[in-house]
Design a protein around this nucleic acid. Structure first.
Lengths: 229, 229
DNA sequence: TAGATTGTTAATCGATTAACAATC
DNA sequence: TAGATTGTTAATCGATTAACAATC
C-alpha cells in the first residue's frame, strides 16, 4: 500500500493533489461565485485586487489561493475568467453530474427541491421522499413526493451516492444510518443534529441555528461597540 | 475618547470583552447546541472530553474555549450545564428578545417563517413581507404576508433592527439599501449575493451555494481517496 | 520602455496542541 | 488519599501578511 498518511503530514499524495485547507476552499468557492458573475456580466479577465476587494481579503492571499488551485494569471491583465471557472470547477468537484435523493418534504425540503440553482453545481435531485403519507403524491416544483419505501430502489437504479436530509431532527440519525446502509456516501444535512456516520462518509451540516447564533453574536458585538463610541 | 483600537491589537476594550476569534465563536455555538441537548436529556454536568468527542476537536481546546468564554468547571466533574448555557447565551448574544422582519415570502422565506426553532435564540419574526401582490394575504405559519408598503411602519412601531432577507438575488441589494435606510442594523441574508452595506451594519450571508460547493469538494476528495486506497 | 500586475520567498502572527500543574 | 478532570504555560504548527522579484 503506497498511500499512507501520518496525522498532520499530508505528504503522501500524488503531485497536484495537495489537500487544501478548509479556509482556502471556502475562499475558492467565493472566487468561483464572483468570477462566474463577472463572466456573466461580460468580463473576460479579473484581477486579484478586484477579487480581494469583493471577498474582503488581501490581494496577496488571492494570488496565493490561485496558485494553490494551480491557476495562473497574466501580469498587467489578471486571471482569465474561463480558466478560473473551469479549474475551480475541477478543484471544487462541480464537474460531474451527481444524482441525489432528498429526504423530508417539509417546508425547507420543498424550498430546496424547488430551487433550481444547484444544477449549476452538477447536483440533480432524482427523487423527493417523505415518510408522511399525507404528503406523498403532492408535487413540489418538478417533483412528486414519493413514499420512503420507493427510496431504496431509486438509489439503486440511479446509483445515487448523495442524500439531502431535510427531515425532522428526531428522525435524522436513524435516516442517516439507513441511507448509509443503502450506499449513500455523502449527506448534506439540514437537520439541527450532528450526525454520526462511519468513516468515509462525508457529512456537511448546514446548521441554520449555528449560523443564527453567530450572526447574533456579531450583532451584539457591533451594538456594544456603538454604545461605547 | 477612550476607546481607540489600533488594527490588530484589540487591547482597547474593557476587561472581559476580548473580541473572540470567529473560529472560537463557531465552536462555542456548537457547545451551546450540544450542551442544551444534554441538559434536555437530563444531564447536569458535561466534561470537556464529551464535548470534544461530539464536536470533533481536542479536549484541551474545549477547555481553552471555555476559559475564553469565562466558564469554569470542576475537576473530576466537568462543567455545570446551567452555567454553560447561561454564560454562552450572554457571549453569543442570545439573551434579549429581538424583533425581525422577514423580506421575501418565497419557498425559503416561508420555510424560515414557519420554523419556530429560532425563538430559542430570542429571534421573533414580527412581520413577513413580499413585493408580489399575489402572495399578499396568504398565511404561512402564524404569519400573514403583508405588502412591502407596510414594512416601514412595522419597523418603526416595533423598533426592529434585524431583517431576514429571503428575496431573489436580483432584488437583494436594493432591498438591503432600503432596509438600512429604515434603521435596520443587521441583515441575515439568504440571497446568493454579497451585499454591500455601510460600516456598522452587520451582514451574515447564509449562502447555500457556497455550502454545497464545499460539500461537493469534500466529497470528491473522499471519493478520490477511496479510489487510491 | 515604464508601469501594472502576477508570483514567490521570508517574516509575522495567531491558533492549535502538548505537557504538566492545580484542584476537587 | 488516589484519581480524574480542569486550568495554564510553553512549544509547535499553519495561515496570513509583507516585501520584493519576475513578467507581460
Amino acid at each position: 500500500m503506497v498511500v499512507r498518511s501520518r496525522k498532520g503530514t499530508g505528504r503522501t499524495r500524488r503531485a497536484g493533489e495537495a489537500p487544501l485547507p478548509r479556509a482556502v476552499i471556502e475562499r475558492l468557492a467565493r472566487y468561483h461565485q464572483i468570477t462566474s458573475r463577472a463572466g456573466a456580466a461580460g468580463q473576460s479577465y479579473i484581477s486579484s485586487a478586484e477579487l480581494a476587494e469583493l471577498v474582503g481579503v488581501d490581494a496577496t492571499m488571492v494570488r496565493k489561493d490561485m496558485a494553490s488551485a494551480e491557476i495562473s494569471g497574466r501580469p498587467k491583465v489578471g486571471y482569465f475568467i474561463g480558466d478560473v471557472i473551469s479549474r475551480l470547477d475541477q478543484v471544487l468537484g462541480l464537474e460531474q453530474r451527481k444524482d441525489a435523493v432528498l429526504i423530508g418534504a417539509g417546508s425547507l425540503g420543498s424550498a430546496i427541491a424547488r430551487y433550481g440553482g444547484f444544477g449549476r453545481f452538477g447536483l440533480k435531485i432524482s427523487g423527493v421522499f417523505d415518510a408522511d403519507y399525507s404528503r406523498v403524491g403532492q408535487s413540489i416544483g418538478d417533483h412528486v413526493i414519493l413514499p420512503m419505501e420507493k427510496c431504496k430502489s431509486v438509489i439503486q437504479i440511479f446509483g445515487v451516492r448523495i442524500a439531502v436530509l431535510t427531515a425532522p431532527a428526531s428522525a435524522a440519525q436513524e435516516l442517516a444510518d439507513w441511507l448509509v446502509g443503502q450506499g449513500i456516501r455523502g449527506i448534506w444535512n439540514f437537520a439541527p443534529v450532528d450526525l454520526r456516520v462511519p468513516a468515509g462518509v462525508v457529512v456537511r451540516n448546514e446548521n441554520l441555528a449555528l449560523g443564527l447564533a453567530q450572526f447574533l453574536h456579531q450583532l451584539s458585538k457591533a451594538e456594544g461597540a456603538e454604545l461605547r463610541v
